[in-house]
Write a protein that binds this DNA or RNA. Structure first.
Length: 421
RNA sequence: GCGGAAUUGGUGAAGUGGUUAACACGCCGGAUUGUGGCUCCGGUAUGCAUGGGUUCGAUCCCCAUAUUUCGCCCCA
C-alpha cells in the first residue's frame, strides 16, 4: 500500500469542515479590516529564503525542502509566508504609486522538513498578515490586535499578547554585545545547547527551557536597558495604542523570535490550554524594517504576523469550539421506483437552485433505509414521493422534528419548505 | 539531525508460536413486500502496517522500511 509522506495529512469529513469554518472566518475577518488576499508561488528560488531567513539557525540548512528542477534551477518549497510576499512586493513595484501601506493576508500551505509531532506537520497551513510600507506604531498595534480579536471571534478567548521590543539595529546590536559580555564568563553554568547558542544566536538563550529559571539568566541584562530613547518611545506608543484597543498584553523581555530580520516590536500569542503544553503559543510576529531593502527593494518599513492553523484547530478542538458544526441539511428527498426517481431528480435540482440544502436518496434502498439516511444528515424536512400522488401533482412533506405529514401541490413545494424551515 | 513508544476490519479495541482472530459501534440483509428511529435474528478481517529472517509452523520472536506519537534540536 502506498502511504502518505511523513508529516502530511488527508483532510476529510468533519475535519475538513473544521478547516473550512476557520478559513471562512479568517477571510471574513481580514476583509473587515480591509486587508487583501495575496498568494505567491509554492516554490521560489532557494536564494530568497537563504537571504531572508539568514544563516544563523538550522532553518535553511536542515529544514527546507530544496530541489532542482529539470533545468537545474535551485528551488525551495515555501517554508513561510513573508519572504515570498516581500519578493513580490519588490518585483511588482507595489511600493510605487501608492502612498498608503499595502495590507495583505494569506492562508495557505507551507513546507518544512521537520520531525512531525501533534500540531507540527511537514505540510502545514499558515495564516498571516503583512503591512508593507508603514512605520506608524499604530500599524504595529493594528497587526497585534487583529489576530487577538480573531482568536476571540473563533472562541479562543484566553489569549494573552506577549510583547517585547528589540529596538532598532543599533539598540539590538548593543544588547547582543552586552549580553554576550555578561554570559561569556559564566558559560560553564549554561546548558550545552546554550553554550552553542552563545556563538550562533545569543538572544535565543533567553528563551531556553533548561536555563530559564537559573540565577544567571534572571540577573542577565534586560533588553529595555539597551534600547535607545527613540526605540523606547516607539515601544511606549505601541503599548498605548494597544491599551486604547483594550488588548490584553504582557511585556516579556525574553521574547526575541528566531530570525535576524526582526526589529522593534516582536510579539507572540500565549494561550492557556494544558493539552498544548505549557507556554504554548498560537503564533507571533513583529516588525521587519530592513528586509525589503535586504532583498533589493527600497527602504520599507513593515510589520507582520503568522500563525500555524494546525495548532489553532487543535486548540479549538480542546475547547470544544466545533460542536456547532454538526451537519444538518434542510431537506431529504425519498423515492422508490424509477418513475418517482425521475421526478425526484427534477424536484431536488429545483430545491437546490432555490437555496434549500437538499440531499437525494442515492442508494435505491427501501424507505426504511432512506429514513435512516435522512436522520444521519439531520434533515429537517422529508419529501416523500409516491406514484399515485404524483399522478395528481402532489408530494408528501414530513416534518422530521414534529413528524407531521402533509400533501402539498408540487408547484408550491419550494414556498412551503422555505416557510417551514 | 538525536532518543523513546506504537501500528490488529470502516471505527474503538481484546488476544495467541499450532485447525474457525473476542467484544462493541458502524454498515448490510431479514422479522416489517412503500413511513423509519426501539427490539430481535443473521452477515460483515482468506487477515493482524510493508518486506525479509528464525521455525515443521509467525499476527505473535528477530531485522529492516514506512507511518503515527512523545521528548530534544529548531521554530520562519
Amino acid at each position: 500500500m502506498i502511504t502518505k509522506p511523513k508529516g502530511t495529512t488527508d483532510l476529510y469529513g468533519i475535519e475538513g469542515k473544521k478547516w473550512e469554518y476557520v478559513n471562512s472566518m479568517i477571510r471574513e475577518f481580514c476583509e473587515m479590516y480591509n486587508y487583501d488576499y495575496m498568494r505567491t508561488p509554492v516554490f521560489e528560488s532557494s536564494e530568497l529564503y537563504h537571504r531572508s531567513v539568514g544563516e544563523t539557525s538550522d532553518i535553511v540548512t536542515k529544514e527546507t525542502y530544496d530541489f532542482k528542477d529539470r533545468h537545474d534551477r535551485e528551488l525551495t518549497l515555501r517554508p513561510e509566508g513573508t519572504a515570498g510576499i516581500v519578493r513580490s512586493y519588490i518585483e511588482n513595484k507595489m511600493y510605487a504609486n501608492n502612498s498608503d501601506p499595502v495590507k495583505v493576508y494569506y492562508n495557505y500551505p507551507m513546507y518544512r522538513y521537520e520531525r512531525p509531532q501533534a500540531g507540527r506537520m511537514r505540510e502545514l497551513t499558515q495564516f498571516g498578515l503583512e503591512v508593507l510600507g508603514g512605520d506608524d506604531p499604530m500599524l504595529d498595534a493594528e497587526i497585534i490586535s487583529m489576530p487577538y480579536r480573531l482568536f476571540e471571534e473563533l472562541g479562543i478567548d484566553n489569549v494573552t499578547v506577549m510583547i517585547n521590543s528589540l529596538g532598532d539595529k543599533e539598540s539590538r546590536d548593543n544588547y547582543r554585545k552586552t549580553l554576550v559580555e555578561y554570559l561569556t564568563p559564566k558559560i560553564d553554568t549554561l546548558c550545552s545547547d546554550c553554550q552553542n547558542r552563545l556563538k550562533t544566536n545569543p538572544l535565543r538563550i533567553l528563551d531556553c527551557k533548561v536555563d530559564k529559571d537559573s540565577e544567571v539568566l534572571k540577573n542577565a541584562p534586560k533588553i529595555m536597558d539597551s534600547l535607545n530613547d527613540e526605540s523606547k518611545a516607539r515601544f511606549e506608543k505601541v503599548l498605548e495604542y494597544l491599551r486604547l484597543m483594550d488588548i490584553d498584553y504582557e511585556i516579556d523581555q525574553n521574547i526575541v523570535r528566531g530570525l535576524d530580520y526582526y526589529d522593534h516590536t516582536v510579539f507572540e500569542y500565549a494561550v492557556d490550554i494544558p493539552e498544548l503544553g505549557s507556554g504554548a503559543t498560537l503564533g507571533g510576529g513583529g516588525r521587519y524594517n530592513s528586509l525589503v531593502e535586504e532583498l533589493g527593494g527600497p527602504a520599507t518599513s513593515c510589520v507582520g504576523f503568522a500563525a500555524g492553523l494546525d495548532r489553532v484547530v487543535l486548540a479549538m478542538d480542546y475547547l470544544n469550539l466545533f460542536d456547532k458544526l454538526n451537519k444538518s441539511i434542510d431537506c431529504y428527498v425519498m423515492y422508490v421506483n424509477e418513475e418517482e426517481k425521475m421526478k425526484a431528480i427534477e424536484i431536488t435540482q429545483n430545491l437546490r437552485l432555490n437555496g434549500i440544502v437538499t440531499e437525494l436518496n442515492n442508494t435505491n434502498k427501501n424507505l426504511k433505509a432512506q429514513f435512516k439516511s435522512a436522520d444521519k444528515y439531520n434533515a429537517k424536512q422529508l419529501v416523500i414521493l409516491n406514484s399515485e400522488d404524483l399522478f395528481k401533482g402532489l408530494v408528501t412533506v414530513k416534518d422530521n422534528i414534529t413528524k407531521e405529514e402533509q400533501k402539498i401541490d408540487e408547484y408550491e413545494l419550494v414556498d412551503y419548505l422555505i416557510s417551514n424551515l
